[in-house]
């Protein structure tokens, strides 16, 4: 799992690559917490290069989403593959986290 960080239109874009599972979810959590600065008010996770996520990763997403909500920061995900989207849908996470098809659409939406 690797995270690369970029900023566009005041949106922090963290692109996650590889796999998030029970063996590395803690590492994912630490990496995200390290990447998000305290004054970031718009955060986007790009899952375009993510091949796999399980409940261990969902737990981290939920914690980050809560943290950002407390700070009144916007949070969204984009570019989920079909199997990853299915995991979010079964878990009902698509109802509490905004999910966009493409990075451009997501930046446009939360960058306003």
């Amino acid at each position: 799992m690797e995270i690369s960080v970029d900023r566009a239109n005041e949106v922090l874009i963290a692109k996650v690559e590889g796999r998030i599972d029970g063996a590395n979810a803690r590492e994912f959590e630490d990496a995200l917490n390290g990447a998000i600065a305290e004054d970031d008010s718009k955060v986007l996770l790009d899952f375009g290069a993510l091949s796999y996520i399980s409940s261990a990763g969902l737990r981290v997403i939920l914690l980050i989403a809560r943290l950002l909500q407390k700070r009144n920061a916007a949070f969204a995900l984009c570019s989920l593959s079909d199997p990853i989207r299915e995991v979010f849908e079964i878990s009902g996470f698509d109802k509490i986290i905004s999910i966009h098809d493409t990075q451009a659409e997501a930046v446009d939406k939360i960058g306003q």
Partner: peptide
Amino acid sequence: EPDIESGLDDRPVGGLGIYLVRTM
């Protein structure tokens, strides 16, 4: 059974793994 309906603040952390297994 996990809570898959409540809002962000009230969602319990975890408990989803076995539910995913049963659903898939």
